[in-house]
């Protein structure tokens, strides 16, 4: 972590009609960091991700991702950022390689290079591919791994993962966590992920942010947040306890 800011936002706000989905968000995320993004359902996590990707236009405020403004230069941002939506979908009547090839073509990767990359990536995400098997027949865990492969095929600098371990079995989610950790450690990819499974977040995140009702109520290392809430010397509190404390205060 050399302190380079990969994601910066300044009072980023999104309003849907009357409802404020994201309220003056300010975050800075460093290169190679694993940032856990927490919050109850409907807190505005996905909206934030979409704004950072340039898929949704902020009502006010600014964001910079890898030095680009997602609203004005969405293509540059999308070239460097991989996004795995919650419950990602695939073209179910194609097999895994065809799905990956389509995504790599959309990224402008020449087919011969893509072939090599796809082979590598399937090994990285540990997905054995039977070419006769369509993606529609894949299990939840296989789909999630294929999703990660699709995200990685463009050699991203940043990946946004929306609930990457949702619905995976314990073994599958452990593998997923290992994969996320190795992305950050070995490839220096910044990982920005949202999750409800707090013990998992605690295992792999360098820092976490807690968002409640569109407002970022806390950002920092888990120990620091524990210190802030429970006093000096209380760093042993788990993320779950810290989160619940913030959550209850946030609802008041």
């Amino acid at each position: 972590m050399n302190g380079l800011k990969v994601i910066e936002t300044q009072d980023l706000t999104k309003v849907y009609g009357e409802e404020v989905a994201v309220d003056r968000l300010n975050i800075n995320i460093n290169e190679g960091e694993v940032f856990g993004f927490l919050g109850p359902n409907g807190a505005g996590k996905t909206t934030t991700l979409l704004m950072l990707l340039g898929l949704s236009e902020p009502t006010s405020g600014k964001a910079r991702v890898c030095g680009f403004d997602p609203t004005r230069e969405p293509l540059q941002v999308k070239r460097l950022v991989g996004y795995l939506p919650e419950n990602v979908g695939f073209y179910d009547d194609m097999n895994a390689v065809q799905n990956l090839l389509y995504i790599s073509r959309l990224n402008g990767i020449p087919d011969d290079l893509a072939g090599i990359k796809i082979k590598e990536l399937l090994k990285v995400v540990d997905l054995e591919v039977d070419p006769r098997k369509k993606v529609g027949e894949y299990s939840r865990g296989m789909r999630q791994r294929l999703g990660i492969a699709e995200v990685l095929i463009k050699d991203p600098q940043v990946v946004f993962l929306d609930e990457p371990t949702l619905g995976l079995d314990p073994d599958g989610s452990l593998q997923m966590l290992d994969l996320i950790r190795s992305l950050s450690q070995d490839k220096k990819i910044t990982v920005f992920f949202s999750s409800h499974l707090l013990d998992q977040v605690q295992k792999i995140s360098h820092r976490v942010g807690i968002m409640i009702k569109g407002q970022m109520v806390a950002v920092g290392r888990i120990e620091d947040l524990a210190k802030e809430k429970f006093g000096v010397g209380q760093e042993k509190y788990t993320l779950e306890e810290v989160y619940m404390k913030y959550f209850k205060e946030g609802l008041l």
């Binding site: 070239r79 950022v81 996004y83 939506p85 979908g89 695939f90 073209y91 959309l106």
Partner: peptide
Amino acid sequence: ARTLSKLVSQPIY
């Protein structure tokens, strides 16, 4: 099929 959000997050207009 939830492929639309994936599609538009690729670097294409």
